[in-house]
């Protein structure tokens, strides 16, 4: 049982890291549906670099760098060129999918190095994720720059009028999102399941994306959601453990999405809006043209 919990927290950590980066990016108004691709890229680059050098930190560094680069690319298309964010994100995913398959295929197989130590029996990336959630919450709600980020995502014109550099803030958030997504990918291939195979991330990027909506853009709800989704994933590997013979693993795996949809429906009802306001950043997905 303990093993299952730790294992599911490892899954949660990966979902959490990617989703947290996406949450910050979406708070600034930029949607990146290419999360899956960024995770694939981060995971593949980290795997190759670590296997080539035998050095874990180097693998992670490589993943962070490539994440920042892809974040910049998404920023360039969606912020500087004011392109459609969904198209740019989808493009990023398809590009990453193809490119990582090409780059990673020769390395298919296990990493062949020892496992990363987990202090006090806790999965390290989950601990890191919780710390980052606390940091992100503090940043967004208790600091000036956080207020600036939220303002840029809600009403960029208002932010601009208050002297806030909209494009710069958005770039920072998107790059941070890219870095975290790549880190999540690296956590997968270096720690959770140190094997490279074709399409190893299996749609977790899209689960993370759904998580952001599920969380209503709140880091703490995101943490709870990631824990829940991680557990459900791990259960889906052996569903007979809990409810023997009732549901196939494929049904279990759709649950994160099945839960997210009713939540999206509820938060867009007039009832919810008049009570809680718009949970969704108002300028999400909209390129900002000055003036």
């Amino acid at each position: 049982m303990w093993e299952l919990a730790v294992r599911s927290l490892e899954v949660s950590a990966i979902l959490l890291l990617a989703a947290l980066g996406e949450l910050v990016g979406q708070r600034s108004g930029v949607l990146n549906v290419g999360l899956e691709g960024l995770m694939l890229f981060g995971g593949t680059v980290a795997f190759i670099a670590t296997q080539a050098t035998g050095n874990f930190p180097l693998g992670f560094a490589a993943a962070l760098a490539v994440g920042a680069l892809l974040g910049c690319a998404h920023g360039f298309f969606s912020i500087t060129l004011r392109g459609d964010q969904v198209v740019s994100g989808m493009g990023l995913w398809i590009l990453s999918f193809g490119l990582t398959t090409f780059l990673g295929s020769p390395y298919a197989g296990p990493l062949g190095l020892g496992r990363i130590e987990s202090p006090a029996g806790l999965p390290p990336f989950f601990v890191l994720g919780v710390l980052l959630v606390a940091a992100a919450w503090f940043l967004l709600y208790r600091t000036g720059p956080g207020l600036a980020i939220r303002s840029v995502g809600e009403n960029p014109a208002a932010a601009e009028a208050a002297g806030i550099p909209v494009a710069a803030i958005r770039y920072l958030c998107v790059v941070a999102g890219g870095v975290l997504a790549a880190l999540a990918g690296a956590a997968y291939t270096l720690s959770y399941n140190p094997v490279w195979n074709y399409n190893f991330i299996m749609g977790w990027g899209f689960v993370s994306l759904a998580l952001v909506f599920f969380s209503m853009w709140n880091p703490w709800i995101l943490l709870a959601g990631a824990s829940l989704f991680g557990l459900m994933w791990q259960l889906s590997l052996s569903p007979e453990l809990v409810l023997p013979g009732i549901l196939s693993r494929y049904v279990w795996r759709t649950l994160p999405f099945a839960i997210t949809i009713p939540i999206l429906v509820v938060i867009s009802t007039p009832w919810f809006r008049t009570r809680w306001g718009l949970a969704k950043p108002e300028a999400l997905g909209q390129p900002y043209a000055k003036g």
Binding site: T143, G144, G146, R150, N155, A158, A161, A162, I164, G277
Partner: peptide, 29 residues
């Protein structure tokens, strides 16, 4: 400059809107 009201962030509180962009909210609010 007092802009027309669409230059406010609807989801923020009155106070947050007023301090937004003020030089003293650089760090911790």
């Amino acid at each position: 400059m007092v802009h027309q009201t669409r230059r406010l962030v609807a989801a923020h509180t009155v106070l947050e809107n007023i301090v937004l962009g003020h030089p003293r909210v650089r760090g911790v609010l």
